[in-house]
Design a protein around this nucleic acid. Sequence first.
DNA 1: CCAAAAGTGTTGCGGTTACACCCATGT
DNA 2: ACATGGGTGTAACCGCAACACTTTTGG
Lengths: 225, 225
Amino acid sequence: MPSGKKQPISVAAVAVDIAVLTIKDGQLNVLLIKANNSPFPEKWVIPGGLVKPNESIGDAVKRHLLAKTGLKNVYSEQLYTFGKVDRDPRGRVVSVAHFVLIPYGAFEPKTSEAYADIQWFPILKIPKLGYDHNEITETAFERLKAKLEYTNIVYSLMPKEFTLGDLQKTYEIILGKNLDKRNFRKKILQTKLLKKISKKTLGEAHRPAQLYSFAKRSPQFIEVI
Amino acid sequence: MPSGKKQPISVAAVAVDIAVLTIKDGQLNVLLIKANNSPFPEKWVIPGGLVKPNESIGDAVKRHLLAKTGLKNVYSEQLYTFGKVDRDPRGRVVSVAHFVLIPYGAFEPKTSEAYADIQWFPILKIPKLGYDHNEITETAFERLKAKLEYTNIVYSLMPKEFTLGDLQKTYEIILGKNLDKRNFRKKILQTKLLKKISKKTLGEAHRPAQLYSFAKRSPQFIEVI
DNA sequence: CCAAAAGTGTTGCGGTTACACCCATGT
DNA sequence: ACATGGGTGTAACCGCAACACTTTTGG
């Protein structure tokens, strides 16, 4: 029995926190905000907030993401649930962390009246964050690296049209290592995840490149790299 | 801002639910209980309960597991957090599901006064459970299968001493397929996870087998099968 | 002597890795 | 002309899969 004494049942509350990731300037970036009503007004944090009694966890992620950033219709995945007793100074809050992936160039953060500041930070150079958000972003980064190798998740980081060079660069940035161009192309084309577009790049100081897009923009498990 | 109106903040509460798994009678089994104080007194469920304001999620898992089953010092891992609005008829409860692995033969459930019934069920033949516990056990099964192939997690399902035949059988039961004996032995001995015991099996109607134990009983990431 | 599981190597195949040159465009 | 990234094939190597017989015990 949870409690011997008859006392009001007191329990932990639920929040969501969201590591929003994208590729920018040749690096993986995380979206950080400074919220005025935060217990850490001077520290950067990732977007998030409480889950209401009448909404699912996924809905809470959508709501807070939209409210804090304006983003919607993005790839989102549950990451891990963080539950240290003292992780929130205001009280006992358990956070279901998520990560969200944004195609590069698809979103430029704008400060609003409610949220003092909002900005992309290269994931390798993020400052000390509020709560346990450094741990959450680190976990998100690890998960992304792992999933890149056995799923087609990369589609959610790419724009509609891209070259094989762009795609390879995305892999190289996240995995932190160089890949062989010919082997990469062989492997990625084998998967049949891509389809050629009847267009090529123009206006760049080198040979035009074939453009591709993803055949299916939905999660699949496949040996990719 | 979460709420425009100034009203008491109402949020979801946090619980843990635990899929306890073991090998028994050549099958993977889950531990199910019937609790008298459950909203589903006639249905089997997996052990679990609320998280207190002053305990971490891991501590809540330990507490509920000990209270409901007597088990302690077991392998435990966070699985996924389930947060459908109506998953608990008593109110809004988000459950951080875990799975726990028990060496085979190490635990025989005993009914206590508080918990009407407690029993192992083959995972392929579990009945319709209370809450969303069928989904949780299914998720646990999938996770176990996946981790078996790229970690040394199997150690937590094995007794201290075992034969290579025993170990292979464990893999075969969980993965649901037969493995080649010679290839299995080569692969598993390559990993250096095992050490020979200076003992052999006795009293069985066949050639005695070399006994092994795990060199390290801690989680590692290694290509196993 | 029979049944049952333990124990043991080699070969072929397939996939991964390593590697270098020409092409098309803009400046 | 030159700089820049695009685009292409092959050979060596290594890891994985397939495969069968002998050994040791208990009954």
